[in-house]
Nucleic acid binder design. Structure first.
Length: 544
RNA sequence: GGCCCCAUCGUCUAGGUAGGACUAGGACACCGGGUUUUCAACCCGGCAACAGGGGUUCGAAUCCCCUUGGGGCUACCA
């Protein structure tokens, strides 16, 4: 049976690169009818946080990726947090030391650094070699007494080349004697990633390791470890990496960096107010702008909100908050470095699962193109069953704390319907929000006012519309449409000439759902009130 | 620097393992037009690529080599 895993290190939100790795493992397992497990690689206790574990779990759940074993669901091979498996790793490390396949080391960081610099100067790679006589327990005692940190290195066999049989790259050969004896146990007693990963994959019965290409260079080391421990070697598939528009691997740093650029480019930003908005000190802001430190993501997000700027989405949650559907994310991500081979692109999950195949993984790195994702999202919004879309929309409204939350399901369904063709849930929300705010909260877009109200006889038309609207008993969609159309006909102008001033009056911009829907949704009283406010604000016209 | 991976339109890719029907296909973006009460959506049309050089072969996007370019790793991070 196929067993795959997703093994994130919990250092923050799940980003799309990680999500893609999780997705490929999950799709493959679902296709093959195997087991998919989630393992938390929190052996770096300084960087890992319980909050981050929860965030990763939430993000995977939002995407619809469910694990058969792991945190919150349990399973026969737990615990699934590496920080709770230390005794297991200790046992195997002891075994290797006893067999002289691993040995203690006492180098200080400075010594290591010096070795690195020397290798650099000689234009060679640093290959750490074991001493002729391996240290024993008494040496460990001595070193500890001398205040030196103790680590354990794996004695990598240097006699023959290591060949990694990779599903996507074929056989990759690593020459004999070029691999450093790498650390498997850190001085804090925790195993390094390499060791924990190899042990857990064996113990958890992992058959296929699907991961990013950045791990390809680690694999010969992992294979050597597997042989030393008498473990199986799983099937490896090293996927292409997702590249960002700015070049290089897609990384979490991009959001803070984008914000830093914006702050630097705008001299007139009040840094003190910015610090307040981000809930950090002015010193922290200065240090951030100087490129020395990076505040936490909530601070970054809060500052971006304060400055009213959009940062590039990197984390799964960013896409959620930008109004993307998990279905579009899954579909789009699955096509980054894979394709079904028959030209299909927009696909429901079932189809994705049915044709997912490791043999169709792409070798070349791919760029994360938000434009295409937008197109996918537009399609998925169109495709989605109304009941589910309503659910997704409500979740979104909650996440962004929208005033639309006050609307009941029937109204929300109507709103979704009147926004057919929307590209994101955010777009639906933004276009409709005007109807859920107080009259005095309407912000008038300067350009819209100039172009629609102040030019020609916009205000005069608005005045006429007001009169007719006031005379109407019931504001049904049909009634509003009849009124506006006949008015346009009388004046011998296009509908736009009468609809646009009204639109700007009620929502402050030229962008809204169809005008008949918009007016009906807002209601007679508010519509007229807003027209009056508008007329007063931008100059009263007597004509009418 | 060392080691490793990769290379088809601006982007994601099909075609490559078994060389010939490839005049290199699709999608997104872009441009032009249409529809339209705004935005979006929608419809029609268009632009656009085998990185360069050498081989092998009757024949190369496809196989080999070199160059160039991109990416990754080079931690007591994972």
């Amino acid at each position: 049976m196929v067993v795959t895993r997703f093994a994130p290190s919990p250092t923050g939100y799940l980003h799309v690169g990680g999500a893609r790795t999780a997705l490929f493992n999950w799709l493959f397992t679902r296709r093959m009818g195997g087991r998919f497990l989630l393992r938390i690689e929190d052996t770096d206790i300084k960087r890992s946080t319980p909050t981050a574990i929860q965030q990763v779990i939430n993000d995977l759940r939002w995407l619809g990726i469910e694990w058969d074993e792991g945190p919150e669901v349990g399973g026969p091979n737990g615990p699934y947090l590496q920080s709770r498996r230390k005794d297991i790793y200790d046992k195997y490390i002891k075994k290797l030391i006893d067999e002289k396949k691993a040995y203690y080391c006492f180098d200080t960081p400075e010594e290591l650094q010096a070795m690195r610099e020397q290798a650099e100067a000689e234009k060679k790679a640093l290959i750490y070699r074991r001493p002729k006589d391996l240290p024993d327990e008494s040496d460990v005692k001595k070193a500890k007494a001398a205040g030196r940190a103790v680590t354990v290195r794996f004695a990598v066999p240097q006699d023959k080349p290591i060949i990694v049989a990779d599903v996507v790259r074929g056989e990759v050969t690593f020459a004999a004697g070029e691999m450093s004896d790498f650390i498997i146990q850190k001085s804090d007693g925790f195993p390094t990633y390499h060791f924990a990963c190899v042990v857990d994959d064996e113990l958890m019965g992992v058959t296929h390791v699907i991961r990013g290409q950045e791990h390809l260079m680690n694999t010969p080391g992992h294979q050597a470890l597997q042989q030393a421990l008498g473990f199986h070697t799983p099937t490896y598939a090293h996927m292409s990496v997702t590249i960002s528009e700015t070049g290089g691997k897609l990384s979490k740093r991009e959001r803070p960096e984008a914000l830093r650029k914006i702050i630097k480019a705008n001299q007139d930003i009040d840094l003190e107010k910015l610090a307040e908005a981000g809930n950090i000190t002015i010193e922290e802001v200065n240090s951030f702008v100087a490129g020395e430190t990076v505040p936490d993501m909530p601070g970054i997000d809060a500052m971006a909100k304060f400055l009213d700027v959009r940062l590039p989405e990197i984390n799964v949650i960013d896409f959620f908050k930008s109004g993307y559907l998990p279905e579009s994310m899954v579909n789009f991500l699955s096509l980054l470095g894979w394709n079904p081979g028959d030209g299909r692109e927009i696909m429901p999950l079932d189809d994705l699962i049915n044709c997912f195949d490791l043999s169709r993984l792409t070798k070349a790195n791919s760029l994360f193109d938000r434009q295409k994702l937008l197109a996918f999202n537009t399609e998925h919004i169109k495709m989605m069953k109304p009941a589910l879309l309503l659910q997704r929309f409500k979740n979104y409204l909650k996440a962004v704390d929208s005033p639309l939350m006050s609307a009941d399901d029937r109204l929300l369904e109507k709103i979704i319907k009147m926004n057919e063709g929307a590209r994101t849930l955010a777009q639906i929300e933004e276009k409709t929000r005007f109807a859920f705010i107080a009259n005095d909260e309407v912000k008038y877009d300067e350009k819209a006012v100039k172009k629609v109200l102040l030019k020609e006889d916009g205000l005069a038309v608005l005045q006429m519309v007001r009169g007719r609207l006031a005379a109407m008993k019931q504001l049904t969609k049909e009634a509003i449409e009849n009124m506006l159309r006949s008015l346009a006909q009388e004046k011998q102008v296009g509908l736009g000439k009468v609809a646009q001033p009204l639109r700007v009056a009620i929502c402050g911009t030229t962008i809204s759902p169809p005008i008949f829907d918009s007016v009906q949704m807002l209601g007679k009283e508010k519509t007229i009130a807003r027209i009056d406010i508008t007329l007063k604000k931008f100059g009263t016209v007597t004509q009418g």
